Computed example of a mutant assay.
Amino acid sequence: MTALRAGWTRGLVELRQSFTNGAELFSHLLWPGLMVAVLFFVRDVSFGGLPLAALALPGILGMNAATGMISMSQQLTADREDGTLLRAKATPHGMPAYLVGKVVSVSGGVLADLVIFLVPAMFLVEGLRIGSWPTLAWVLALGLVATLPAGAVLGSLFRTARAQGLVQLPFIAVIGISGVFYPLTALPEWLQAIGQVFPIYWMGLGMRSALLPDAAVAVEVGESWRHLETAAVLGAWAVLGLLVAPIVLRRMARRESGSSVAARRERALRRIG
């Protein structure tokens, strides 16, 4: 309980700071703003008799939720590089509190970004169904649980923030084959099979089931919203991440020391010089 309280407080402080810092506030507004612009330009395009903007909006929500994985990875690597993780390790209940705080701050940031995007998009896009909020809620919650532990595992693999660029390209590739901006059925069958392995597709599918009219299911794989499959795949990713992440993070924390932090800082100073 001590770790939970400390982590909750830490997460709220970090979340508040992200909205009072100019650079971070700009990042909160930039991506939702770009996605609203995309919907504006495709608002008159249709696919399968349905507005393309309406088909894309739920997928964009799922993609934005999945970016919490990248944010978690980047923040964990940055905190490891500057010694924040080492200080957490040296504090009683520090590591559990640190992880709880990161989950709170990253999840809160993701939810805020989704609201910033969704509010103007609801006025811009026609043909949406606003009646399945419980479905939207459980898909979003399960999706975050499925992706944030994976982000923690990725963050533990990189010693410097510079190496985080290696995560971006595969992530963009996964987005491209996950049916975010167009139905997955538009892709070859072998790419459809690969896309359905990752949680981004299932988060988008679940959100489409909550926001789109029943007729939209005709362009989905198997002409079904596949709620059971969505829960199963996201649940499998969540269980795997929750099992693997603590093991990986404990091993990473044991290897951290003052000398390793100092060495990384010295290498960073040499690059700057």
Rank of each mutant, 00 (worst) to 15 (best):
V239D: 05
A236P: 03
L140Q: 09
M122V: 15
M122S: 09
T230D: 09
R208D: 04
S105V: 05
G222F: 09
R162Y: 14
V221Q: 10
V104W: 10
W190V: 13
F181N: 08
G235Q: 10
A112S: 13
A236D: 04
Q164A: 07
L154C: 07
S178T: 13
W225R: 15
E126C: 00
G109N: 11
S107A: 15
R226E: 14
I177V: 15
F123Q: 10
L169D: 00
Y182W: 15
I177P: 03
F181P: 00
S224F: 02
V197P: 00
P134H: 06
I172F: 13
G131F: 09
V119R: 11
F123G: 12
A193R: 12
E220W: 08
L114Y: 07
T230L: 06
P188F: 10
H227C: 00
T135K: 12
P134S: 05
L111N: 05
Q164R: 10
L157C: 08
I175S: 01
L240D: 05
L140P: 06
V197T: 10
L212S: 05
P213Q: 06
W225K: 14
Y182C: 03
L142G: 05
P134E: 02
G109L: 01
L169C: 00
P183V: 13
A218N: 08
F117L: 15
R226C: 01
M122Y: 08
G155L: 03
A193P: 00
W225Q: 12
S156I: 03
S107V: 06
E229F: 02
W133M: 11
A163V: 10
Q192L: 04
P188K: 09
L212P: 01
A216V: 03
A137L: 13
G206Y: 07
A186F: 13
A137E: 00
M122F: 11
A231Y: 07
A238C: 09
I194L: 15
G155M: 02
A210E: 04
A146F: 08
V167K: 05
R162T: 12
T135Q: 14
W190C: 01
G131L: 06
A173S: 08
S156P: 00
L166E: 02
V119G: 07
G241C: 04
L240H: 03
A193I: 11
P170G: 09
S132M: 08
P199M: 03
E189C: 00
S156H: 07
V197L: 14
V106T: 13
S209K: 11
T230I: 11
F158L: 15
R226I: 01
I200H: 05
P188T: 08
T135R: 15
G109F: 05
A238P: 04
T160Y: 14
A218L: 13
G109V: 04
P170M: 14
W133P: 00
P188G: 08
A152G: 13
G235T: 09
S105L: 02
A141G: 11
V239H: 06
E189S: 10
I200R: 02
A112D: 01
A215Q: 13
A137P: 03
W225F: 11
V221Y: 11
W133L: 14
F198S: 04
S224G: 08
V110F: 01
W138M: 06
F198N: 03
G195H: 07
